[in-house]
Design a protein around this nucleic acid. Structure first.
Length: 423
RNA sequence: GGAGAGUUGGCAGAGUGGUCGAAUGCGGUAGUCUUGAAAACUAUUGAGGGUCAUACCUCCAGGGGUUCGAAUCCCUUACUCUCCGCCA
């Protein structure tokens, strides 16, 4: 959520920044300012009324104490009118605040200066490309065929047990998956991240904290009985660790990592592009999350990019990095880089990681602050990224490492899998 | 699931109707002392709104109520703890 004083002071910049998302913020921004003016005026009126009745109450108390009950009773009669006016101002103020809140929820984060304008994924900038795309043998197949051929992922069985989008991994498929999780976590820990095991169900407040609510209500699985949501990403429980937290400056930066399954309803997305492992209702992901001093958050961002690069290099997968344009950058993010692995047999790029700096947008909702060197409480910056999303890495390995003899296991993973080929 | 107890500032923990935004301790900050540090001592230290700055207002888990006046009484929701039941 953007801060109102920031919007007031940087009105033109906010509108221009959001234009890069093809988001016309002009009316919203105007409304925010008008409502905020109204809010202030009402607050002042309410405060004055309350001050008056506070003074009166004090006087009544004093009169009683000094035995002047008759005078006190006389004063009491005057309080009812004050009560009514303060109630009216209070109600008015509340509706005003509610409206303001709603407006603020509608404003996405202002993109960083370096973010290109653009409408959709076609306007994203490729800023990095590494690894050669392997020449596959004549009979090379997409991963869903390979999965069947080597009996490592059973989509039909998942359909039977749960439904589409819930694959069953078995044998070496399951073991490879587990190896990847362990490898990613070890890499993250070696880079200074602390491992967490987090709840997979979260409450409403946490969903508001990271912005899944109110915007993305229908995209999460919801247990109505207990009013809990299945997490769509570890970002939700991981970042909400810091909801309503005041850190000391010396405690920054905070770096955490965690493996969790992720659950997404993905309502309405079917078809060829979601075949196999491309899009699932349940998938595994290892996430990295950082809380940073505002002065260092972009340095941390670069560090996260390098870190993910390092993992993909070790896996020897061909990948590229995209700087997302304004239109494709997620609602709460100021800047996002996507990592994509080339899926040889499908002849397309698959997103496997997304690293974002939210600056203070999430922190403002979360009330995540730190005491700065001047002794003032200041909003921290939050960042997160995947390292990595499992199914598409798996798809990338299956497709890029397939040979006539079977699927080779990237060397770095062999100590984790305990086998070097799936055949 | 049943019964009971609790939720107070960065943390711990007093406070049961009127100078309580809240004792005390820890922690933080500044200073004295010290070559420097530690210890000790002294001072200072909750958050938000509002103002040029004051004034002033709000906040003692969330919401509602009683009262001239609520951290304190009542209702309600959430959470925590203890006991019983159930259970990997």
């Amino acid at each position: 959520m953007l801060q109102v004083p920031f919007i007031r002071d940087n009105k033109a910049a906010v509108i221009a920044g959001l234009a890069k998302r093809h988001f016309d913020a002009k009316d919203l921004v105007e409304q925010v300012i008008v409502l905020d003016d109204e809010r202030r005026a009402l607050q002042t009126k309410l405060d004055n009324t309350l001050a008056e009745s506070n003074a009166m109450s004090k006087e009544i108390g004093n009169l009683y104490k000094s035995g002047k009950a008759a005078q006190a009773n006389q004063l009491k009669e005057k309080t009812s009118a004050l009560k009514e006016t303060s109630k009216a101002f209070g109600d008015h103020l509340n509706t005003c605040l509610e409206k303001l809140q709603n407006l603020l929820y509608q404003l996405p984060n202002v993109p960083h200066d370096s973010v290109p304008a653009g409408k959709s994924e076609e306007d994203n900038e490729e800023i990095f490309n590494e690894g050669s795309i392997p020449e596959l043998y004549a009979g090379a197949e997409p991963h869903w065929e390979l999965a069947k051929k080597y009996d490592i992922i059973d989509f039909e069985l998942g359909n039977k047990i749960a439904g589409a989008g819930f694959p069953v991994y078995k044998g070496k498929g399951a073991r490879l998956q587990r190896a990847l999780i362990a490898y990613f976590l070890d890499k993250n820990i070696a880079a200074g991240y602390t491992e967490y095991q987090l709840p997979l169900l979260v409450n409403e407040a946490s969903c508001y904290g990271t912005g899944q609510l109110p915007d993305k209500e229908g995209q999460m699985y919801h247990d109505a009985q207990d009013n809990l949501y299945l997490i769509p990403t570890a970002e939700v429980p991981g970042t909400n660790i810091f909801r309503d937290v005041l850190l000391n400056e010396a405690e920054l930066p905070v770096s955490i990592t965690g493996y969790t399954p992720c659950f997404r309803r993905e309502a309405g997305s079917y078809g060829a592009h979601v075949r196999g492992l491309n899009r699932l209702h349940q998938f595994d992901k290892v996430e990295i999350i950082r809380v940073e001093h505002p002065d260092h958050s972009y340095k941390a961002f670069d560090g996260m990019i390098e870190h993910v690069k390092g993992i993909l290099r070790e896996l020897k997968l061909p990948f590229r990095i995209l700087r997302l344009c304004g239109g494709d950058t997620g609602f709460p993010a100021a800047m996002t880089y996507d990592f994509e692995v080339f899926s040889t047999a499908q002849d397309r790029w698959l997103e496997i990681s997304s690293v974002s700096n939210f600056e203070t947008y999430q922190a403002n909702r979360l009330k995540l602050r730190f005491k700065n060197s001047a002794g003032k409480n200041e909003l921290a910056h939050t960042l997160n990224g995947s390292s990595l999303a499992l199914p598409r890495v798996l798809a990338g390995i299956l497709e890029n490492y397939q040979t006539e003899k079977g699927i080779e296991i990237p060397e770095i993973l062999v100590p984790y899998t305990g086998f070097s080929i799936i055949d």
